Amino acid sequence: MTLQPISPARHEDGRTLYLAGFAERFGMNDLSGLPLLWQRFAPHIGHVPGRHGHDSYGVCYNPDEQGGFDYLAGVEVNAGQVLPDGFSTLTLTPQHYAVFEHRGSLQCLKATFDGIFQWLPRSGERQADAALFERYPAGFDPADPDAVMEIWIPLQRK
């Protein structure tokens, strides 16, 4: 099956985000641990000290040449928040982003990412050396065929 590139829903200048949650290292050849990370984190979502807002975030950062990357499943918190043992923190600095919508079950998320990364080289844009993230609204159900979430791809400023 040949996927078609998808266009961004919009471009947006992000703001500083202070995130806290659970983080692990993954490789592109085996992403099976991502749902398990979210399953471990999910019971904490409404109980993270200093939580700010209602969205949850999945952040890919620190990529390497072998396809490895760190991934944080987390929520936004107040800067400098003291957190329970086992939590990781990550600060995202302001970037310019292309924002894409993913509609439907997370089982099809890879197809959306594939479409984004087909769009990117054809768009004239260049990805910035910064974290990309998924933004999940409150109440997001990963199995709901009508669910909507966003993927934020950092772009180099022109």
Results as ranks from 00 to 15, higher is better:
L72C: 07
T93H: 15
R25I: 06
L92E: 07
P63S: 11
R122M: 11
I151F: 10
D55W: 07
M28A: 14
G80Q: 04
D64M: 08
D55G: 00
D70Y: 01
S32P: 01
P142W: 08
A23R: 14
T89P: 05
P49A: 07
H47A: 15
E24K: 14
S105P: 00
T2E: 14
F117A: 02
D114Q: 15
S56K: 02
R40Q: 12
G50L: 05
H102V: 05
K110Y: 04
D64Q: 09
F26T: 05
F117L: 04
A79L: 08
E76G: 06
H52Y: 07
A20K: 10
P8L: 08
D85Y: 01
D146S: 11
M1T: 12
Q118V: 01
L155M: 12
A128N: 08
G14W: 10
I6L: 14
T16Y: 01
P121T: 07
R10S: 13
Q156E: 15
Q127A: 13
P142I: 02
E65G: 07
F41D: 02
Q95A: 11
A138K: 12
G67I: 05
I116K: 10
S105R: 13
N62E: 14
K110M: 10
R122D: 12
A23D: 03
C60A: 15
A79K: 14
A131W: 09
M28N: 11
E134Y: 04
Q39M: 08
F113G: 00
G104H: 08
E125Y: 13
W38H: 11
I6Y: 00
A23G: 02
R126V: 10
K158S: 13
V82N: 04
V48R: 07
R40D: 06
E125D: 09
E134V: 04
H54W: 00
M1Q: 10
R103D: 00
A42S: 13
E24T: 07
H44K: 12
